[in-house]
């Protein structure tokens, strides 16, 4: 682990503790929802790196297609994997929060639908390569899928939003995050956003290093096999 990674880890650790303290203890409970609302800090905290990861997949895929340098494929793949994890967190914390607040685990809210689609797109981006036998095709085909998927995401948000404004909302779906009044709530939110972003960056760096080490190991193994074979 390099010094940079160690510093990053330390910073992440501190910010994460602060975020926990603020979110769970210092920030006051929501007037309407009570303590349940505290999950919001983790919920929103995870969707943000999810988006970040997605933009990175778009960026990295374009860079790969232009340069054909495998490092960009690895970087986007790791980003996609982490994005998938964060999206899964959003999709699990969402219903936990929704049940006591809205009375149901799932509602066809624009954000919910979009996140579900985002999750599916991430899922296919990360997993499609396992079904491509030809290793030289894998990064290229995945990159194209990454770009197509990423370009579709804004449209998912756009269409679900327009859909909502044109159709009457069910009564159970009051706007949940309109209740932020207290400055401590804001601090807790920003702290958790920072903590999750640092977590994303840290995991990403770790993942890329791991991926490169794996590649190197594979190469060395191939070389060894050749030495033994010929």
């Amino acid at each position: 682990m390099s010094l940079k990674d160690k510093l990053l880890f330390a910073l992440m650790f501190v910010v994460m503790q602060l975020a926990l303290v603020w979110a769970l203890a210092i920030a006051p409970p929501d007037k309407l929802q009570g303590d349940v609302q505290r999950i919001f800090y983790f919920h929103l905290g995870s969707i943000w790196p999810g988006f970040l990861a997605f933009f990175y997949v778009l960026y990295g895929s374009i860079r790969y297609l232009v340069s054909r340098d495998l490092i960009w494929d690895r970087k986007s793949l790791v980003s996609g994997e982490i994005g998938l994890v964060f999206c899964s967190i959003v999709l699990t914390t969402g219903p936990v929060w929704a049940k006591p607040t809205w009375g149901v685990y799932w509602a066809w809210d624009a954000r919910l639908t979009s996140t579900l689609v985002l999750w599916l797109v991430f899922f296919f981006y990360v997993n499609l390569r396992n079904y491509i036998d030809d290793e030289s095709k894998r990064p290229r085909v995945s990159a194209v899928l990454g770009i197509v998927g990423a370009l579709m995401v804004p449209f998912v948000y756009m269409s679900t939003r327009i859909f909502e404004t044109q159709h009457p909302k069910p009564v159970i779906m009051g706007d949940a995050d309109s209740g932020i009044r207290d400055p401590n709530m804001n601090i807790a939110l920003y702290l958790s956003l920072a903590a999750f972003t640092l977590l994303y960056i840290y995991l990403w760096r770790l993942g890329v290093q791991q991926m490169l080490t794996k590649d190197r190991l594979k190469k060395l193994r191939g070389r060894l096999l050749r030495l033994e074979g010929f």
């Binding site: 296919f124 030809d134 194209v144 899928l145 197509v148 449209f155 756009m158 859909f163």
Partner: peptide, 30 residues
């Protein structure tokens, strides 16, 4: 695009509709 992407995989007939449909959500809604 998706049909050519999935044609490169070994489960193309299954994967094509599965990968394609989530990407069709905005088009379908609109």
């Amino acid at each position: 695009l998706v049909v050519v992407i999935t044609a490169n995989t070994r489960m193309k007939d299954v994967l094509f509709p599965v990968v394609q449909l989530p990407l069709m959500v905005p088009t379908l809604i609109a």
